[in-house]
């Protein structure tokens, strides 16, 4: 598997994004996935996408310019956006873990 790249977005790129990034790194370590994460503000995502296309975006807040294609299915420039809030509350964490693994392994 190629090295995967995940963009993590929140309001500040500091607080909730860091919490999500740490949870994801734990997941990658456990599952033996070769991936790195970058944190940014939700409002910077558009600029970021003009520089580099991540394999997945996990965000704790809506991303300006995102497309809502259906319930729980959001994309921007064709990149899937997952809601990272379960990593903050602990509720639904396992489901989010699984969704991330599915997308990174191309099962989505």
């Amino acid at each position: 598997m190629n090295k995967k790249h995940i963009l993590i977005a929140c309001g500040t790129a500091v607080a909730t994004a860091t919490a999500v990034a740490m949870k994801m790194r734990e997941l990658f370590e456990k599952e033996g996935i070769n991936a790195d994460t970058t944190q940014c503000k939700a409002i910077e995502v558009n600029y970021y996408l003009s520089q580099r296309t991540p394999d997945l975006i996990v965000s704790t807040t809506p991303i300006p310019g995102e497309k809502i294609n259906g319930p729980n299915h959001r994309t921007i420039n064709g990149v899937t956006i997952l809601n990272g809030i379960p990593y903050l509350t602990g509720i639904g964490k396992e489901k989010l873990d699984q969704e991330i693994l599915n997308i990174l392994s191309g099962k989505h």
């Binding site: 929140c10 309001g11 939700a42 409002i43 704790t60 809506p62 300006p64 809030i85 903050l88 509350t89």
Partner: peptide
């Protein structure tokens, strides 16, 4: 009610 960081609503279009 779970108390969270208000950062999670800072991406809403009107807020931005």
């Amino acid at each position: 009610i779970i108390g969270m960081d208000a950062a999670i609503v800072t991406g809403y279009p009107a807020v931005v």
